[in-house]
Each structure stands twice: as structure tokens, then as C-alpha cells.
Nucleic acid binder design. Structure first.
Lengths: 238, 238
DNA sequence: CGCAAACTTGACGGGGCGTCAGCTATTTCG
DNA sequence: CGAAATAGCTGACGCCCCGTCAAGTTTGCG
């Protein structure tokens, strides 16, 4: 977002500078698809992009910064997904729609897995720019997801509803990580279609708040501490 | 595991060498708690551990290798968790037990988040040693999780059961990522206790295979492709 | 055309990387 | 015990990447 109008020297960027910057971003994107971030050198980007390292430093401070610019271009909320999330989800289509959502979500991760992985990793390290990039990228999805939670749980008695913000946060966490894990070789017999199926099942369960064991369900928004008094060692450490 | 008996020079390690190696691992662990992996220099580890950089290279090839050694020491399957997973889970305690499990799991991530994050990131990049480290670390949990799926779904008609391997893979993915995300500042009102609650709810749902919308549930192990025919762009790319 | 702003680069000092020869400490064993 | 063998440690060095700067080239505009 907020495409910069100046380079790092404070100069107004004209068409030539803009193109050079674009080429650097494109090259960085390309390299990140083939090699871990930490192995990508400024000299390598320069060589592939056909500019000197000095030129690189006119537009970016570090390789991570160039990667961030590439990451900002990834649209996690494709028109298809938005469209799906904004259409009504009748009860008898809940699982089908969840499945479609999961597949759409995974296909975006398939396409951009290197960039999205780096984004999340650096964000997890606490880098505010990457945290913001992630937040901005998932926000359109997140808000519509929350609406779906409210929509699908409006029939439930209040005390059995799940908190929309927390529910969506956990669901997106599941989707993010499953999209990654699904790419790793699995020693156990977890196949992609079956993991899609499980993910869809969980999305549907959480969205609808449906539970088959209501008899023992306490206030759904309760404090978890009430039910687990074991020795949580340093649960708030670091 | 498989503590090396030799250093990288092919020498048998005596007690002195062993202690030096331990000190390097401990220092690496400590530094990783304060600073991202990529910023940690060999010289810094050496200085903190009271050895020269040359000594470092006798025991490890790179900083990542030292980090891997530190990671191998983390036991994700604490006795408490194993104990919980091996005890019976009566239906009317399903959610409580799930909640306890989630809290135990999160507390381990709280304690070792830096190491576990690095482990998963490097594994996701395709590094076999880190992939193996992750697999070995979660296996005790994973197997017992699978047993619970079978145990809790044995009453269900076969066509409604979830595939244990895929179910557990997705659940662990959810727990791993949620344990991370829970640490990030949340712009929306997702609080830790509520995210624990949602995670526990999803664990309980998946373990029991319970669904409130059985009427439209197809063969639970089906191919996801049957239900989503939209334009999945490059779902198997890269 | 001519000037100012935009753009690019080669060259360079600084610093982390990884190796090696040579020294010290410990162990082995006659 | 003493000496040879083995384990352990390090300073110094060459290499490569980093990030900057002064000095050049190109572009746009009056």
C-alpha cells in the first residue's frame, strides 16, 4: 500500500526510477520462490535485476525491505473469496461453502507460499511493519468471517455463541498453518484432500457454533482458567 | 537426540569438549530468546560463551546448526500432556479435557516460542533436519491424538468418521499457529482466554467428529474437489 | 539548447565468515 | 612418574558481503 513517491535519497521518483524499483521487487519475489530469505544477497538481486548494488540501496535499505514491498502486493482476499464470503450461506450448504473457502484460501497460499511464510515469520519475531502487512492483508477476510459467525449463530441462545473475533482469529490461524503443513512431506497418511476436508469441517463447526455435546458446555465465553488448574509453567513468559 | 560422540574435526569428545559444546548451545538458546536468528553472529555467541569463534566452528558449522541442537532439547510432549492423552476421555468431560490440552500445549509454546518458531520456519523452507526435528518432537503427541480420534469416533457410523491422520495433522497445525498468533498484539478483540476456548471447542469437535448439520454431510473422507469446482488457480503450483 | 533534477555506478572502508597452523591441556600407558 | 598421543583452543588471515559516497550520465522541461 501507500506506494512511495520518493526514493530513499528524498528524490521524486520519475518513470525510470519507478521501473527500476519495480524490477528490483520482481526479482526479489522471483528469488524468494527459489531460495530462503537469509541466503539472498543484495549483490544477487542486483545482478538478476541488471542494476548495481548501489542502485538497490537507493530504493531499499535491506533485502527484507524489498521482500516486504513484494509481500504488500499479495492480495490474500481474492475477489472470489470476498464474493463467497458475501453471499448467503444457507444451513444446508454450510459444509460445501466451507470447503470452497478452504480450497480458495489454500490456492492463494500455494501461489504465494514463500512470500506469505516470510511475512508471518518476520511478523512473529515482532517486526511491526510485517505485523501490519499481515493485518492489512487478512482484514477484509477477517471482517467478513466475523459477520458470518454472527449471521450463523444468531439463532443460538446468547450464552452458547462463540466470540466472533477470537473464533475468526483461531480459524485463520488454522488455515494459515495448515496451508503450510500440507506442503511438507507427511510421514503419516494425512493427504491433502482429507486435510481440506477436516479444515472445512472445523470452519463449519466454528462458524455455526454447532456442538454435539451441548449438555456439558459451560458459558462459551468463559475464562479458560476456570477449567484448567494444572501447573501451567510460565504461561505468560518472555 | 543421538548426542554426537565426535566434534566436527572427527575427534572423540571428552568431558571438556562436551562442556564447551553445552555452553555454546545454552548461549545460543539464550540469545534466540532475545534476538532474531538472522541477527545472531558467531562472534556474539563466542563472546557470550567465553570461547573464540574458531572454537565455535569446531562444534557447529553455522548458527542454525547450533540452534538446531538447542531445538532438539525441547520436549513438546510433556509428561502432563502424555498423561492427559492416555487417560480416558468420557463424553461429559470432552470439552474440559480439550481445554486442558490446549492450555498445556500453549504453555509449552510460551516457554519455547523462539526455538519452536525457528524450527518450524526453517522446516517450512524445506530443510530436512528441521523437518525431522519437528516430526520427532510432535510424534508422541500425534500418535496419542490419533488414538483419541479413533476412540471417540468408534460409535459413529464408518462413513461419518474423520480420517485420524488428517484430523490430527490439522488440529496440530491449528494449535501451533494459534500459539504464535496469540502472542501478537490483536487489533480486534480476540483475547487469549477466548482463543483458548475456541481452540478447545475445535479440538473437541474434531476429536468427536460431532456435527450439527449431518443432513448434508457427504462421505466424510471424500475428495474435496467434488464439492468445489471454482477456478482454483494453480492449487498444486511451485 | 542548457540547466536542474533524477538516476546510476565504481570504488572503498568496515566487518562477519570460515580456515589453518601452532600452541596448550588432558589423557593414556609404559 | 614422564613422555607420547590425543583432545582442545585460538590469533591471524583472506574472502566476500555490506552500505556509503563522490563523481559521472540521463531525463525532462523551460
Amino acid at each position: 500500500m501507500a506506494r512511495p513517491k520518493q526514493n530513499l535519497y528524498g528524490q521524486e521518483m520519475g518513470s525510470k526510477g519507478f521501473l527500476t524499483r519495480e524490477k528490483i521487487i520482481a526479482t526479489t519475489t522471483e528469488l524468494l520462490g527459489r531460495r530462503p530469505l537469509r541466503e539472498i544477497k543484495v549483490a544477487e538481486i542486483g545482478q538478476s535485476a541488471g542494476v548495481s548494488t548501489s542502485t538497490f540501496y537507493i530504493y531499499f535499505e535491506t533485502v527484507s525491505d524489498a521482500a516486504l514491498a513484494a509481500i504488500e502486493r499479495v492480495n490474500q482476499a481474492s475477489p472470489e473469496i470476498i464474493n463467497l464470503m458475501e453471499s448467503p450461506w444457507p444451513r444446508n450448504k454450510l459444509l460445501q461453502n466451507s470447503r470452497a473457502l478452504v480450497n480458495m484460501y489454500f490456492s492463494i497460499w500455494d501461489k504465494h507460499h514463500a512470500l506469505l511464510r516470510v511475512r508471518n515469520f518476520v511478523a512473529d519475531e515482532g517486526d511491526k511493519r510485517f505485523i501490519d502487512a499481515r493485518r492489512r492483508s487478512i482484514e477484509p477476510l477477517l471482517l467478513r468471517f466475523q459477520d458470518k459467525v454472527r449471521e450463523l449463530q444468531e439463532d443460538l441462545p446468547e450464552e452458547r455463541r462463540l466470540d466472533p473475533a477470537s473464533t475468526v482469529s483461531v480459524l485463520l490461524a488454522m488455515l494459515e498453518r495448515t496451508a503450510q503443513v500440507i506442503r511438507l512431506p507427511s510421514a503419516h497418511r494425512a493427504t491433502r484432500p482429507r486435510q481440506v476436508e477436516t479444515a472445512a469441517f472445523l470452519v463449519a463447526s466454528a462458524l455455526s457454533g454447532g456442538v454435539p455435546f451441548l449438555d456439558e458446555m459451560p458459558a462459551a465465553k468463559g475464562q479458560s482458567g476456570d477449567y484448567f488448574k494444572g501447573d501451567i509453567e510460565g504461561a505468560a513468559s518472555n
